[in-house]
Computed example of a mutant assay.
Amino acid sequence: MAKYKKQGSRKTSPAAAPSISISPRKSVETASRQQTIAQQRAGFALKKVLAVTPDKETANRFKAYANSLPAMIQTNGIGQALAFAKMKGNGRGPEASAWLALYKAVSEWLTTGERGIWPAQQDVMEAIVAGDQYQYQRAHAEAQALLSWIKQFARAEIAGDSHE
């Protein structure tokens, strides 16, 4: 019983910290300005999906390719999968537009701002070949996480069947 002092009718621990009162309004305001990386990915992905929805044919192809690109990255690696997407994006028509939109989305995510793995690079392909193994692994994981959101939003926002 030496640990506790009796003060009035309450027992308190000598190591108890004084309580600090924080205004609930202030903590809500602060929390609303900060977003998790998952929220940032989701917002970015939704913007990219909504950008392709006006053209139905491109949108349907985008949805199909968004479903297949994560598997390509897992099987072949991010470098080869993005090189394939960039190659398919060279051309005309809805197929090329859809591949190019996917390539640009992943490229922009990996090379832009504080969240980007290569913020100093303009092109993700140059960054991949110049980067180290740790950056490559981070890029792989970030691309998969981003594409997971893109795939979900494409399924939700784009009506109709996917064209493979």
Rank of each mutant, 00 (worst) to 15 (best):
Q74C: 08
G91Q: 06
N67G: 12
F84R: 10
E95Y: 06
A154N: 03
P119I: 02
K104W: 08
T75L: 12
G131S: 04
A85K: 05
F84Q: 12
A96C: 01
A130Q: 07
S148Y: 15
L110P: 13
N60A: 10
P70T: 02
I73D: 06
N67Y: 08
G91D: 10
S97D: 15
R138A: 13
G89T: 00
Q152L: 05
T75F: 13
Q74K: 15
I78F: 05
A154I: 06
D123M: 07
A145E: 12
R115E: 12
K88I: 02
L82C: 00
K86R: 14
A130G: 07
Q133T: 13
K63Q: 06
N60S: 13
W118M: 09
L102F: 05
G91P: 10
A85T: 03
P94V: 00
Q80H: 08
N90L: 12
E95Q: 13
D132M: 06
K63Y: 04
E142Q: 11
N60V: 08
A141P: 05
R138F: 06
I128K: 00
G89K: 00
A64H: 00
A71F: 06
N90E: 14
E126R: 11
N90A: 11
Q137H: 08
A64Q: 02
L102G: 12
T58G: 05
G113D: 00
E95M: 09
P119W: 02
K151T: 14
S68A: 08
M125Q: 04
Q121N: 12
Y136H: 14
V124R: 01
A71V: 03
S68T: 13
W149I: 02
G116N: 01
I150L: 05
K88R: 10
F153M: 04
W109Y: 14
A81R: 12
E95K: 11
L147V: 07
A71P: 01
T58E: 11
Y65W: 07
T111F: 11
A145V: 12
R92W: 09
M125L: 10
N67V: 08
Q80F: 09
M125V: 03
A105K: 01
K104N: 14
R61V: 08
R138S: 09
P94G: 09
D132A: 10
E142K: 05
Q122E: 07
N67T: 11
F153K: 07
W149A: 07
F153G: 06
Y136F: 15
I117C: 09
S107R: 03
R115L: 12
T111P: 15
A81N: 13
T111A: 09
L102A: 10
E108R: 04
L100K: 14
